[in-house]
Design a protein around this nucleic acid. Structure first.
Length: 330
DNA sequence: AGGAGGATTCCTGAGCCAAC
DNA sequence: GTTGGCTCAGGAATCCTCCT
Protein backbone atom coordinates (compact mmCIF):
# COMPACT_ATOMS: atom_id res chain seq x y z
CA UNK A 1 0.00 0.00 0.00
CA UNK A 2 1.19 3.48 -0.80
CA UNK A 3 2.00 5.59 2.24
CA UNK A 4 1.10 9.31 2.41
CA UNK A 5 4.77 10.14 1.96
CA UNK A 6 5.20 7.96 -1.12
CA UNK A 7 1.91 9.35 -2.46
CA UNK A 8 3.34 12.87 -2.14
CA UNK A 9 6.50 11.79 -3.92
CA UNK A 10 4.46 10.29 -6.72
CA UNK A 11 2.28 13.39 -7.11
CA UNK A 12 5.39 15.53 -7.28
CA UNK A 13 6.86 13.19 -9.91
CA UNK A 14 3.62 13.15 -11.94
CA UNK A 15 3.31 16.92 -11.84
CA UNK A 16 6.88 17.28 -13.12
CA UNK A 17 6.13 14.95 -16.01
CA UNK A 18 2.92 16.80 -16.90
CA UNK A 19 4.75 20.12 -17.06
CA UNK A 20 7.46 18.66 -19.28
CA UNK A 21 4.92 17.05 -21.61
CA UNK A 22 2.97 20.32 -21.95
CA UNK A 23 6.16 22.22 -22.78
CA UNK A 24 7.32 19.61 -25.27
CA UNK A 25 3.90 19.39 -26.93
CA UNK A 26 4.29 23.02 -27.95
CA UNK A 27 7.62 22.26 -29.54
CA UNK A 28 6.20 19.31 -31.53
CA UNK A 29 4.88 21.75 -34.08
CA UNK A 30 8.40 22.83 -34.89
CA UNK A 31 10.31 19.56 -34.99
CA UNK A 32 7.95 16.69 -34.27
CA UNK A 33 10.06 13.57 -34.39
CA UNK A 34 13.29 14.51 -32.69
CA UNK A 35 11.43 16.51 -30.03
CA UNK A 36 9.07 13.62 -29.36
CA UNK A 37 12.04 11.26 -29.02
CA UNK A 38 13.66 13.69 -26.61
CA UNK A 39 10.49 13.77 -24.53
CA UNK A 40 10.17 9.97 -24.54
CA UNK A 41 13.81 9.67 -23.48
CA UNK A 42 13.20 12.21 -20.73
CA UNK A 43 10.12 10.32 -19.43
CA UNK A 44 12.06 7.04 -19.53
CA UNK A 45 14.90 8.63 -17.63
CA UNK A 46 12.48 10.07 -15.06
CA UNK A 47 10.94 6.60 -14.54
CA UNK A 48 14.41 5.13 -13.97
CA UNK A 49 15.24 7.86 -11.46
CA UNK A 50 11.93 7.40 -9.63
CA UNK A 51 12.36 3.62 -9.50
CA UNK A 52 15.84 4.07 -8.10
CA UNK A 53 14.76 6.35 -5.26
CA UNK A 54 11.34 4.82 -4.46
CA UNK A 55 12.25 1.19 -5.06
CA UNK A 56 10.52 -1.89 -6.33
CA UNK A 57 6.82 -2.55 -6.05
CA UNK A 58 5.51 0.98 -6.66
CA UNK A 59 3.64 -0.02 -9.84
CA UNK A 60 4.98 3.19 -11.21
CA UNK A 61 4.46 2.46 -14.92
CA UNK A 62 0.92 1.20 -14.49
CA UNK A 63 -0.11 4.23 -12.40
CA UNK A 64 1.67 6.63 -14.69
CA UNK A 65 -0.09 5.21 -17.74
CA UNK A 66 -3.52 5.74 -16.12
CA UNK A 67 -2.70 9.24 -14.87
CA UNK A 68 -1.10 10.49 -18.07
CA UNK A 69 -3.99 9.17 -20.16
CA UNK A 70 -6.32 11.08 -17.84
CA UNK A 71 -4.26 14.27 -18.02
CA UNK A 72 -3.54 14.11 -21.78
CA UNK A 73 -6.38 12.18 -23.45
CA UNK A 74 -5.32 13.39 -26.90
CA UNK A 75 -1.66 12.57 -26.44
CA UNK A 76 -0.97 9.07 -27.77
CA UNK A 77 1.73 6.84 -26.44
CA UNK A 78 0.82 6.68 -22.77
CA UNK A 79 0.18 2.94 -22.68
CA UNK A 80 2.05 0.84 -20.15
CA UNK A 81 3.94 -0.86 -22.92
CA UNK A 82 5.04 2.40 -24.47
CA UNK A 83 6.18 3.75 -21.10
CA UNK A 84 8.26 0.58 -20.70
CA UNK A 85 9.78 1.25 -24.10
CA UNK A 86 10.59 4.80 -22.96
CA UNK A 87 12.39 3.40 -19.95
CA UNK A 88 14.28 0.90 -22.15
CA UNK A 89 15.06 3.79 -24.51
CA UNK A 90 16.61 5.81 -21.66
CA UNK A 91 18.58 2.75 -20.56
CA UNK A 92 19.85 2.18 -24.09
CA UNK A 93 21.04 5.80 -24.38
CA UNK A 94 22.18 6.63 -20.85
CA UNK A 95 23.89 9.89 -21.78
CA UNK A 96 21.13 11.21 -24.04
CA UNK A 97 20.29 11.27 -27.75
CA UNK A 98 22.55 12.34 -30.57
CA UNK A 99 21.61 13.85 -33.93
CA UNK A 100 21.39 10.47 -35.69
CA UNK A 101 18.99 9.01 -33.10
CA UNK A 102 16.56 11.80 -33.94
CA UNK A 103 16.47 10.84 -37.62
CA UNK A 104 14.49 7.63 -37.23
CA UNK A 105 10.93 7.18 -35.98
CA UNK A 106 9.98 6.13 -32.47
CA UNK A 107 8.78 2.76 -33.74
CA UNK A 108 12.06 2.13 -35.51
CA UNK A 109 13.66 2.72 -32.12
CA UNK A 110 11.14 0.34 -30.53
CA UNK A 111 12.07 -2.31 -33.09
CA UNK A 112 15.76 -1.81 -32.36
CA UNK A 113 15.13 -2.04 -28.60
CA UNK A 114 13.11 -5.23 -29.09
CA UNK A 115 15.32 -7.05 -31.49
CA UNK A 116 18.89 -5.80 -31.26
CA UNK A 117 21.10 -6.39 -28.25
CA UNK A 118 24.04 -4.09 -27.68
CA UNK A 119 24.65 -0.44 -28.51
CA UNK A 120 27.18 -1.12 -31.26
CA UNK A 121 24.79 -3.35 -33.14
CA UNK A 122 21.86 -0.95 -32.63
CA UNK A 123 24.01 1.84 -34.02
CA UNK A 124 24.82 -0.31 -37.08
CA UNK A 125 21.14 -0.90 -37.89
CA UNK A 126 20.19 2.70 -37.06
CA UNK A 127 22.68 3.96 -39.61
CA UNK A 128 21.33 1.50 -42.18
CA UNK A 129 17.80 2.82 -41.61
CA UNK A 130 18.99 6.40 -42.09
CA UNK A 131 21.06 5.55 -45.18
CA UNK A 132 18.44 3.41 -46.92
CA UNK A 133 15.14 4.74 -45.59
CA UNK A 134 14.05 1.24 -44.54
CA UNK A 135 10.49 0.73 -43.35
CA UNK A 136 10.01 -0.96 -39.98
CA UNK A 137 9.24 -4.29 -41.71
CA UNK A 138 12.39 -4.05 -43.81
CA UNK A 139 14.38 -3.33 -40.68
CA UNK A 140 12.89 -6.40 -38.96
CA UNK A 141 13.72 -8.52 -42.00
CA UNK A 142 17.31 -7.32 -42.10
CA UNK A 143 17.77 -7.90 -38.38
CA UNK A 144 16.27 -11.38 -38.50
CA UNK A 145 18.52 -12.32 -41.42
CA UNK A 146 21.59 -11.19 -39.40
CA UNK A 147 22.71 -8.59 -41.92
CA UNK A 148 25.54 -7.53 -39.59
CA UNK A 149 27.08 -11.00 -39.80
CA UNK A 150 26.79 -11.25 -43.57
CA UNK A 151 27.76 -7.79 -44.74
CA UNK A 152 31.33 -7.50 -45.97
CA UNK A 153 31.92 -11.25 -45.64
CA UNK A 154 32.06 -12.12 -49.34
CA UNK A 155 35.20 -13.88 -50.50
CA UNK A 156 36.91 -11.67 -53.09
CA UNK A 157 40.16 -10.50 -54.64
CA UNK A 158 39.43 -6.77 -54.34
CA UNK A 159 42.60 -6.04 -52.37
CA UNK A 160 44.73 -7.26 -55.29
CA UNK A 161 42.65 -5.84 -58.12
CA UNK A 162 41.70 -2.41 -56.79
CA UNK A 163 43.75 0.66 -55.80
CA UNK A 164 45.08 0.66 -52.25
CA UNK A 165 42.40 1.43 -49.68
CA UNK A 166 39.46 1.00 -52.03
CA UNK A 167 38.89 -2.67 -51.33
CA UNK A 168 37.55 -1.99 -47.81
CA UNK A 169 35.17 0.65 -49.15
CA UNK A 170 33.81 -1.71 -51.79
CA UNK A 171 33.47 -4.95 -49.83
CA UNK A 172 30.87 -3.52 -47.41
CA UNK A 173 28.37 -3.43 -50.28
CA UNK A 174 28.49 -7.20 -50.66
CA UNK A 175 27.39 -10.05 -48.40
CA UNK A 176 27.79 -13.76 -47.89
CA UNK A 177 25.45 -15.55 -47.78
CA UNK A 178 22.60 -13.86 -49.63
CA UNK A 179 19.16 -14.87 -48.37
CA UNK A 180 16.53 -15.37 -51.08
CA UNK A 181 13.68 -16.54 -48.86
CA UNK A 182 10.94 -14.78 -50.78
CA UNK A 183 10.21 -17.57 -53.30
CA UNK A 184 10.45 -21.33 -53.52
CA UNK A 185 12.40 -23.33 -56.06
CA UNK A 186 12.67 -27.10 -56.51
CA UNK A 187 16.03 -28.62 -55.49
CA UNK A 188 16.86 -29.46 -59.11
CA UNK A 189 16.09 -25.92 -60.39
CA UNK A 190 18.35 -24.72 -63.18
CA UNK A 191 20.05 -21.32 -63.36
CA UNK A 192 17.40 -19.78 -65.64
CA UNK A 193 14.64 -20.66 -63.15
CA UNK A 194 16.56 -19.09 -60.29
CA UNK A 195 17.28 -16.03 -62.40
CA UNK A 196 13.61 -15.72 -63.42
CA UNK A 197 12.45 -16.08 -59.81
CA UNK A 198 14.81 -13.32 -58.69
CA UNK A 199 13.70 -10.97 -61.44
CA UNK A 200 10.02 -11.76 -60.75
CA UNK A 201 10.61 -10.63 -57.18
CA UNK A 202 12.80 -7.70 -58.17
CA UNK A 203 11.78 -5.52 -55.22
CA UNK A 204 12.76 -8.10 -52.61
CA UNK A 205 15.78 -9.10 -54.66
CA UNK A 206 17.14 -5.55 -54.72
CA UNK A 207 16.32 -5.16 -51.05
CA UNK A 208 18.47 -8.19 -50.31
CA UNK A 209 21.25 -7.04 -52.65
CA UNK A 210 21.42 -3.89 -50.58
CA UNK A 211 22.08 -0.23 -50.93
CA UNK A 212 23.05 1.18 -54.34
CA UNK A 213 22.16 -1.70 -56.68
CA UNK A 214 20.18 -0.66 -59.77
CA UNK A 215 18.96 -3.50 -61.98
CA UNK A 216 19.81 -3.12 -65.69
CA UNK A 217 18.76 -6.44 -67.15
CA UNK A 218 19.00 -10.21 -67.43
CA UNK A 219 20.65 -12.23 -70.19
CA UNK A 220 22.41 -9.11 -71.39
CA UNK A 221 24.16 -9.79 -74.68
CA UNK A 222 27.91 -9.28 -74.96
CA UNK A 223 29.54 -9.67 -78.38
CA UNK A 224 33.22 -10.57 -78.63
CA UNK A 225 35.24 -12.12 -81.43
CA UNK A 226 32.14 -12.67 -83.53
CA UNK A 227 30.48 -14.67 -80.76
CA UNK A 228 27.62 -13.74 -78.47
CA UNK A 229 27.77 -14.20 -74.72
CA UNK A 230 24.98 -13.58 -72.21
CA UNK A 231 25.42 -12.09 -68.75
CA UNK A 232 22.93 -13.59 -66.27
CA UNK A 233 22.22 -10.35 -64.43
CA UNK A 234 23.62 -6.87 -64.88
CA UNK A 235 23.47 -4.08 -62.29
CA UNK A 236 24.84 -0.59 -61.97
CA UNK A 237 26.01 0.37 -58.50
CA UNK A 238 25.10 3.98 -57.89
CA UNK A 239 27.51 4.43 -54.98
CA UNK A 240 30.49 2.55 -56.40
CA UNK A 241 29.84 4.05 -59.86
CA UNK A 242 30.52 0.82 -61.68
CA UNK A 243 28.66 -2.06 -63.28
CA UNK A 244 28.19 -5.33 -61.41
CA UNK A 245 27.91 -8.53 -63.43
CA UNK A 246 26.29 -11.44 -61.61
CA UNK A 247 26.50 -15.07 -62.63
CA UNK A 248 24.14 -17.52 -60.94
CA UNK A 249 25.07 -21.15 -60.34
CA UNK A 250 22.62 -23.63 -58.85
CA UNK A 251 25.39 -26.03 -57.87
CA UNK A 252 28.68 -25.91 -56.02
CA UNK A 253 31.34 -23.36 -57.01
CA UNK A 254 33.83 -24.51 -59.65
CA UNK A 255 37.16 -22.78 -60.47
CA UNK A 256 36.28 -22.41 -64.15
CA UNK A 257 33.49 -19.97 -63.23
CA UNK A 258 36.17 -17.43 -62.31
CA UNK A 259 37.88 -17.70 -65.70
CA UNK A 260 34.60 -17.13 -67.48
CA UNK A 261 33.75 -14.15 -65.27
CA UNK A 262 37.23 -12.70 -65.79
CA UNK A 263 36.64 -12.85 -69.54
CA UNK A 264 33.19 -11.20 -69.20
CA UNK A 265 34.65 -8.37 -67.13
CA UNK A 266 37.50 -7.66 -69.53
CA UNK A 267 35.17 -7.71 -72.52
CA UNK A 268 32.53 -5.60 -70.78
CA UNK A 269 35.02 -2.95 -69.61
CA UNK A 270 36.53 -2.69 -73.07
CA UNK A 271 33.24 -2.25 -74.93
CA UNK A 272 30.74 -0.77 -72.49
CA UNK A 273 32.53 1.01 -69.67
CA UNK A 274 32.43 4.79 -69.92
CA UNK A 275 35.16 7.15 -68.72
CA UNK A 276 33.29 8.10 -65.55
CA UNK A 277 32.70 4.46 -64.53
CA UNK A 278 35.03 2.34 -62.45
CA UNK A 279 35.99 -1.17 -63.60
CA UNK A 280 33.06 -3.61 -63.49
CA UNK A 281 32.87 -6.04 -60.59
CA UNK A 282 31.91 -9.68 -61.04
CA UNK A 283 29.88 -11.66 -58.53
CA UNK A 284 29.55 -15.43 -58.76
CA UNK A 285 26.60 -16.64 -56.69
CA UNK A 286 26.60 -20.37 -56.02
CA UNK A 287 24.53 -22.80 -53.98
CA UNK A 288 27.66 -23.79 -52.08
CA UNK A 289 31.42 -23.39 -52.22
CA UNK A 290 34.65 -24.66 -50.80
CA UNK A 291 36.60 -21.78 -49.31
CA UNK A 292 40.03 -23.07 -50.30
CA UNK A 293 38.98 -23.80 -53.88
CA UNK A 294 37.49 -20.31 -54.17
CA UNK A 295 40.64 -18.75 -52.74
CA UNK A 296 42.90 -20.49 -55.25
CA UNK A 297 40.54 -19.72 -58.12
CA UNK A 298 40.72 -15.99 -57.32
CA UNK A 299 44.45 -15.87 -56.69
CA UNK A 300 45.87 -14.84 -60.09
CA UNK A 301 42.88 -13.08 -61.58
CA UNK A 302 43.26 -9.41 -62.53
CA UNK A 303 39.59 -8.32 -62.52
CA UNK A 304 37.66 -7.73 -59.26
CA UNK A 305 35.57 -10.82 -58.57
CA UNK A 306 33.64 -11.97 -55.52
CA UNK A 307 32.21 -15.38 -54.71
CA UNK A 308 29.23 -15.80 -52.40
CA UNK A 309 26.59 -18.39 -51.69
CA UNK A 310 22.84 -17.99 -51.41
CA UNK A 311 20.21 -19.59 -49.17
CA UNK A 312 16.67 -20.07 -50.40
CA UNK A 313 15.21 -20.21 -46.88
CA UNK A 314 15.62 -17.82 -43.98
CA UNK A 315 16.79 -20.64 -41.75
CA UNK A 316 20.41 -19.78 -41.18
CA UNK A 317 22.53 -22.84 -40.56
CA UNK A 318 23.03 -23.19 -36.79
CA UNK A 319 24.13 -19.78 -35.55
CA UNK A 320 25.78 -19.05 -38.88
CA UNK A 321 28.37 -21.71 -38.25
CA UNK A 322 29.29 -22.11 -41.89
CA UNK A 323 32.95 -23.18 -41.92
CA UNK A 324 34.14 -20.54 -44.36
CA UNK A 325 32.48 -17.56 -42.72
CA UNK A 326 34.29 -15.68 -40.04
CA UNK A 327 31.90 -14.35 -37.40
CA UNK A 328 34.20 -11.97 -35.58
CA UNK A 329 32.35 -8.92 -34.28
CA UNK A 330 34.51 -6.38 -36.11
C1' DA B 1 -7.19 -3.33 -51.22
C1' DG B 2 -2.81 -3.37 -49.48
C1' DG B 3 1.25 -1.42 -47.37
C1' DA B 4 3.35 1.22 -43.73
C1' DG B 5 3.53 3.28 -39.43
C1' DG B 6 1.64 3.85 -34.88
C1' DA B 7 -0.44 2.09 -30.65
C1' DT B 8 -2.16 -1.35 -27.61
C1' DT B 9 -3.04 -5.86 -25.58
C1' DC B 10 -1.80 -10.39 -24.31
C1' DC B 11 1.09 -13.62 -22.39
C1' DT B 12 4.99 -15.99 -20.29
C1' DG B 13 9.01 -16.18 -17.67
C1' DA B 14 11.72 -13.98 -14.25
C1' DG B 15 12.72 -10.98 -10.28
C1' DC B 16 11.61 -9.15 -5.80
C1' DC B 17 10.25 -9.44 -1.18
C1' DA B 18 7.60 -10.38 2.94
C1' DA B 19 6.00 -14.13 5.73
C1' DC B 20 6.98 -18.38 7.59
C1' DG C 1 16.14 -21.28 3.03
C1' DT C 2 11.57 -21.77 0.97
C1' DT C 3 7.28 -20.33 -0.71
C1' DG C 4 3.76 -17.67 -2.76
C1' DG C 5 1.98 -13.43 -4.30
C1' DC C 6 2.94 -9.37 -6.61
C1' DT C 7 5.34 -6.90 -10.08
C1' DC C 8 8.25 -6.32 -13.96
C1' DA C 9 10.32 -7.21 -18.65
C1' DG C 10 9.85 -7.86 -23.15
C1' DG C 11 8.39 -10.64 -27.37
C1' DA C 12 4.65 -11.25 -30.39
C1' DA C 13 0.24 -10.51 -32.11
C1' DT C 14 -3.37 -7.54 -33.15
C1' DC C 15 -5.85 -3.51 -34.18
C1' DC C 16 -6.25 1.17 -35.98
C1' DT C 17 -5.31 4.95 -39.10
C1' DC C 18 -3.48 7.03 -42.99
C1' DC C 19 -1.97 6.99 -47.61
C1' DT C 20 -1.64 5.54 -52.38
Amino acid sequence: MATAKSQDKYQEFLSGLKTEIQTEQMKFVLSANSQMLRLFWWIGHAILRYRKTEGWGTKIIQRLSVDLKKAFPDFKGNSERNLKYMRAFALAYPVGLDVKSGKISWYHHVTLLDKVKGEKLRRFYMEKVIENGWSRDTLVHQISSDLHLRQGKMQHNFAKTMPAGKSELVEVFFKDPYIFDFFELPQEAIERELEAALVNHIYRFLLEMGDGFAFLGRQVQLEKGGQNYYLDLLFYHTKLHCHVIMELKTGEFKPEYVGKMNFYLSAFDEDYRSVEDGPAIGIILCKSKNKVTAEYALRDVNNPIGIAVYNLTDAMPGNLEIPYITTDAN
